[in-house]
Amino acid sequence: MSISNKYSRFISILSLILFVSNELCLCMPSKLLNATLNGEAFSPAVATWYGSPTGSGSGGACGLENDVIYAPYNGMISAGNGNLFRSGAGCGTCFMVKCTNNPACSGYPIRVTITDECPGLCNNDRIHFDLSGKAFGFLAKPGRGDELRKAGRIDVQYTSVQCHYDSKIAVKMDAGCNAYYIAMAVENVNGDGEINRIEISAQGWKPWASMQRKWGETWIFNVPSGTTGPFSVRFTDRSSRSVVAYNLIPRNWAPGKKYYSNINLP
């Protein structure tokens, strides 16, 4: 073998190693690596993709709008059928997905967050991920994303995992809010990713008041007359773990604004 051929082979192998390392670091915390690479932990499902071929999808029915384009989601998201979306309760949950049955599949798992609903025909399958074009392409071997996307519908394997974001819980105020009505979407939730209960308290209140889920990750509260904030918010996940973000929503809060806490779930 000539020196040039040896060099080319070395570069190809090195590129593959770097791709795999990047994929695993981008989509999966190291402490989940061993568990999620164990094939016995995965179950069968179906995956399709929507939007532009390399697009980031949308926050759709979960109320996250275009925030899914940016960190910590970075477009690695999916719409889910009824068994994943669960009438909005599944918003924010995280899964590892991998494909092995197509020649273009890398066989390595990616982590995606449920941020939208895939209704209709998606419910003909028990579990159906409708991935962003970007996420779908990340299931492929280097340089073969377009080839895999051409398949349209593929068999995949999936497993539920804990969410781990390098970010704090944030709330985005709905554009239709006013002084007497708060509606906010919750983002970047670690752990289960699934918020089961939210309570709110204004400065000077002693009891916590319950907010109501309106749709997806959007929760609402009718503000008592004369209440101005700031508001503290207590988040409780599916596993009954709670954290409190004190004075998260400032006194001068405004519709459409996003407010970051200094806490997150484990």
Rank of each mutant, 00 (worst) to 15 (best):
Leu131Met: 12
Asn124Tyr: 03
His128Asp: 03
Leu131His: 09
Leu148Ile: 11
Arg153Asp: 00
Val112Glu: 07
Arg153Thr: 06
Gly107Ser: 08
Leu121Pro: 05
Ile114Met: 08
Leu121Tyr: 05
Val112Tyr: 09
Ala151Ser: 01
Ile114Cys: 12
Cys118His: 06
Asn123Met: 09
Leu131Pro: 09
Pro142Leu: 14
Thr115Met: 11
Val112Trp: 03
Thr113Gly: 05
Arg144Gly: 10
Gly145Phe: 14
Phe138Ile: 08
Asp146Glu: 15
Pro142Tyr: 10
Gln157Asn: 14
Val112Gln: 05
Asp116Glu: 07
Gly137Trp: 06
Cys105Ile: 14
Val156Glu: 07
Gly152Val: 05
His128Glu: 00
Ala135Ile: 02
Ala140Asn: 07
Ile110Arg: 14
Ala135Thr: 02
Gln157Met: 07
Thr115Ser: 15
Thr115Trp: 01
Leu121Ile: 09
Asp155Ile: 09
Gln157Gly: 09
Cys122Gln: 02
His128Thr: 00
Ile154Pro: 09
Leu139Val: 15
Ile127Trp: 02
Asn124Phe: 03
Phe129Lys: 00
Gln157Lys: 14
Pro119Ala: 14
Leu148Asp: 11
Lys134Tyr: 14
Asp155Val: 12
Phe129Cys: 05
Asp130Tyr: 01
Tyr108Pro: 06
Cys105Lys: 13
Gly152Pro: 04
Cys118Leu: 06
Arg126Leu: 00
Arg111Tyr: 13
Cys122Arg: 00
Arg149Pro: 13
Lys134Ile: 05
Asn124Ile: 08
Ile127Ala: 01
Gly152Ala: 08
Lys141Asn: 15
Ala140Lys: 13
Phe136Arg: 02
Phe129Asn: 02
Gly107Ile: 09
Lys150Cys: 11
Phe138Cys: 15
His128Met: 08
Asp155Trp: 10
Gly143Asp: 15
Ala151Gln: 03
Gly137Ile: 06
Cys105Asp: 14
Gln157Trp: 11
Gln157Tyr: 14
Asp125Tyr: 04
Asn123Phe: 07
Lys141Ile: 11
